[in-house]
Amino acid sequence: MRKVRAVLASAVMVLGVSMTIGATPATAAAQLSGVFKDYSECQRVGNLGVAQGWWDDYSCVWESRYRYYFLYA
Rank of each mutant, 00 (worst) to 15 (best):
R2K: 15
R2Q: 15
K3Y: 15
K3S: 10
R5F: 15
R5A: 15
V7L: 14
V7N: 00
L8W: 14
V12H: 02
L15V: 06
G16T: 00
G16W: 04
S18Q: 09
M19P: 00
G22Y: 08
G22P: 00
A23Q: 12
T24R: 08
P25E: 06
T27L: 09
A28R: 11
A30T: 03
A30W: 05
Q31I: 11
Q31E: 11
Q31K: 13
L32Y: 05
L32K: 09
S33L: 06
G34T: 10
V35N: 05
V35R: 13
V35D: 06
F36V: 05
F36N: 01
S40A: 12
S40W: 00
S40K: 09
C42E: 07
Q43N: 10
Q43V: 12
R44F: 14
R44N: 13
R44I: 07
G49Q: 11
G49D: 12
V50F: 07
A51E: 13
G53R: 11
G53Y: 12
W54T: 09
W54K: 11
W54H: 12
W54M: 12
Y58V: 07
Y58T: 02
Y58E: 03
S59P: 00
C60K: 02
E63W: 06
R65C: 01
R65S: 14
R65G: 00
Y66E: 03
R67W: 08
L71T: 10
A73H: 11
A73P: 14
